[in-house]
């Protein structure tokens, strides 16, 4: 069938096909730029399942809590990348079931705990703690968990157990950034046994009453609120009781910058930046950093007589 008027357009007026396609490409390019991820805010995070039977615990601060979205999208978890947004974007590859935690070393009852067994080991409590990152920012997070001391009591450490070592999972298939050599994997952290036994020290399995998101260290992590955040190892697969102080991942990476204790201390600066102040996430003005992150009443006695400049 012949369409009337089809030949009315002179050939010179017809846009050559290449030009026409190029123009389309150009328009598509502009449109793509406008909606590209570089210009778009991240989607709100998917929430975890609610944890049942959580009771309010001791030591909780009444300070304003950092919004869930900030807590779960602004993270340091180098196993998933060194950028702050990387863990929230990349941690979906982590499989949190099945999961076991090996408790071993200088103890009478070494044991391989299944994660679901560990979750029922002691009553779950909510603890609202301040978190101070060594980089100079802080949050207030309602953790869910139980004191690490509950676990320690059950495994009966021997007299040789003077330190506790925590190992994060080492599996580059699940933790893609472990293929880089930015740290010596696996991530290892450590506490003195009295620090590990302190009632503030928490084995956390959740936050905001919900199962711990992967980027925050699922399924089980440590929370030591008077120390810089990196001391609180995430996604733990091994807890080992030892006689000698563990060589932690950050001590191996930069021994002059990160010591074994790494207690929050406004008077001892990081070699490259000040620790006197911090930016609480969500606040505009910086606030003064408190000695032991505000937990001096609870923990200062642990370090009596210790030169905190030398043992930073």
């Amino acid at each position: 069938m012949r369409i009337i008027g089809q030949d009315d357009i002179p050939a010179s007026e017809i846009t050559p096909r290449e030009v026409y396609l190029k123009r389309r490409q150009f328009m598509a390019g502009i449109a793509a730029l406008a909606v590209s991820p570089a210009f778009a805010a991240a989607a709100p995070p998917v929430r975890g399942a609610r944890l049942a039977g959580v009771k309010p615990g001791r030591f909780s601060t009444r300070e304003a809590q950092t919004p869930y979205e900030s807590v779960t999208t602004y993270n340091n978890f180098y196993e998933f990348g060194t950028g702050k947004f990387d863990p929230a974007e990349n941690a979906h590859t982590l499989k949190t079931r099945p999961w076991t935690v090996s408790v071993e070393g200088e103890i009478k009852r070494p044991r391989l705990y299944d994660i679901d067994e560990l979750l029922k080991l002691a009553p779950l409590e909510e603890r609202v703690y301040r978190l101070r990152c060594v980089e100079g920012w802080s949050m207030v997070i309602p953790w869910v968990g139980f004191p690490l001391a509950e676990l320690i009591r059950r495994v009966e450490p021997s007299g040789n157990a003077r330190f506790v070592e925590f190992h994060t999972l080492h599996d580059p298939a699940q933790m893609p950034f472990q293929r880089s050599s930015v740290l010596d994997w696996p991530y290892v952290e450590g506490l003195r046994i009295d620090e590990a036994n302190h009632p503030l020290t928490l084995l956390a399995v959740g936050l905001y009453g919900e199962v711990l998101p992967r980027q925050n260290g699922a399924p089980v992590r440590l929370v030591v609120p008077w120390k810089y955040g990196f001391k609180s190892a995430k996604s733990i697969v091994k807890i080992r009781f030892v006689e000698k102080p563990p060589l932690t991942a950050w001590m191996r990476a930069a021994p002059n910058e990160y010591g074994f204790f790494s207690n929050v201390n406004p008077k001892v600066d990081h070699p490259r930046w000040s620790q006197a102040k911090e930016r609480r996430i969500g606040e505009f003005f910086k606030r003064d950093t408190l000695m032991f992150n505000g937990y001096a009443d609870q923990v200062a006695h642990l370090y009596r007589g210790l030169d905190l400049r030398k043992f930073f």
Binding site: A38, F39, A40, A41, A42, T66, E69, S70, V71, T73, Y74, K84, F85, W137, R279, I281, G282, F284
Partner: peptide, 18 residues
């Protein structure tokens, strides 16, 4: 422009100043 757009949409993350 990107910073302005992100700022208006709350897309600068938890620590906008950084």
């Amino acid at each position: 422009l990107r910073l302005v757009v992100l700022g208006l949409n709350g897309g600068l993350g938890a620590n906008p100043i950084e």
